[in-house]
Design a protein around this nucleic acid. Structure first.
Lengths: 222, 222
DNA sequence: TGCGATTTGTCCGTATGTATT
DNA sequence: TAATACATACGGACAAATCGC
């Protein structure tokens, strides 16, 4: 019954809460709500034409996804970003993704490779169009491949949490610095190594990939 | 201004929502709410003498902690447990804890060792008393040491999520099988290796430690 | 320091949509 | 298919805490 999707296809958010959550997330990733900015419930409530109950629940879910932060009686704010946070995000991604590859390596299949190829091509072509929001989703989907291959639900949960932060930084990077299509070869090399015979080479490449990504974002933020 | 506490000392939950969350968590860990059991909002609302708004927010937070699951229009249930979930939990813990030790290794200090000793002794003495709830918290605190030593907030967040699931399985293990004081030597060896000179020996021990823990819980569940 | 305005936290009654039997 | 139980959502109200002057 469930499509084998990641959370890419909303299809339809059944509850108002889910719709609100998506709208706020879009505003954050789109740069309308900037890091550190205060979100006032009554204002949001009237803007989005929803009552405070589902709004507050949506906000709490975004807190648990790491998009927002909250303190009792002080309300919600967009998560502030720092170089330290970014550093932690990349080191965490590196550790999780290495773990994922170690698990996924013997589980790779021809169908899996075909799917990875598809996501690779989608990513490359959407990058060319300059549609930032879609490019981010494609980038996430591309990297999600290895996690899905592990068939490890808990690991996928933790990746999902990380991916939200990745989205924030990618959108920030783009909003500040413009597109970053300069990683084309890196992406293709990543795909080829996934399809190759050496796990060690793959793990080594992840370190490089992450380090380069980190440097690039840091440079853009400064 | 903040005390250097983990989440061990509630001190006082300022919001009703936080108090409700704790009460429900206690009921789950205490075995009053069993895995898979349905939680009806109106019933809980009147039992706990709170309105449904903060109750629902508390329930959502527990969902995000992995304690409960929910589906639109079908309500909340205590997270069902399976051998697969347990296996994933232990493999995830192994991966994260190895990563934590690699980071923490050069950051260890004499004060840190003193703190670890304290937690070790607390754990051993509380195990002797048979107070299950406190023993679980001490066990969690003992293992939290390495994560705190890393000074890596994002990693600590992910450990916090895992720790909630660990609590569930430990309480389940106890409720079904009785206390498990048979791990005394293992715990002491873990502490000694933390204090020792070989990171590799530590990492190897983590594998053994987790494998034994997994086998023990699986045996109790069957 | 205090005081008023703003905002969050909580409660209640009601109405509607969904799942289940 | 109908009936019931329940989750979802609304709007108004007030208390409690924070914020700004």
């Amino acid at each position: 019954m469930n499509a084998p999707t990641t959370e890419l296809s909303p299809i339809e958010d059944r509850t108002l809460r889910a719709q609100v959550r998506r709208q706020i997330l879009d505003r954050v990733l789109g740069g309308h709500f900037k890091p550190g900015e205060r979100l006032v419930e009554t204002a949001l409530s009237s803007q989005l034409r929803v009552s405070r109950a589902p709004l507050r629940e949506a906000l709490r879910e975004l807190v648990d996804q790491g998009i927002l932060v909250s303190e009792p009686y002080k309300g919600f704010r967009v998560r502030p970003v720092s170089e330290r946070d970014l550093k932690e995000l990349f080191s965490m991604r590196t550790a999780l993704e290495k773990f994922a590859f170690a698990l996924a390596w013997p589980l790779r299949t021809p169908q899996g490779f075909a799917e990875l190829d598809k996501r690779h091509d989608d990513l490359m072509s959407i990058r060319a169009t300059g549609d930032q929001a879609k490019a981010i989703e494609c980038e996430i989907a591309f990297h999600a491949w290895v996690y899905e291959t592990t068939d490890h639900r808990l690991l996928m949960d933790h990746w999902a949490r990380l991916s939200h932060l990745v989205r924030i930084y990618m959108s920030l990077h783009h909003n500040l610095h413009g597109s970053h299509g300069e990683f084309g070869e890196m992406t293709t090399r990543y795909r080829d190594l996934c399809n190759g015979g050496s796990l060690d080479a793959m793990l080594l490449h992840i370190d490089e990939h992450m380090t380069q990504g980190f440097d690039s974002v840091v440079k853009a933020l400064k």
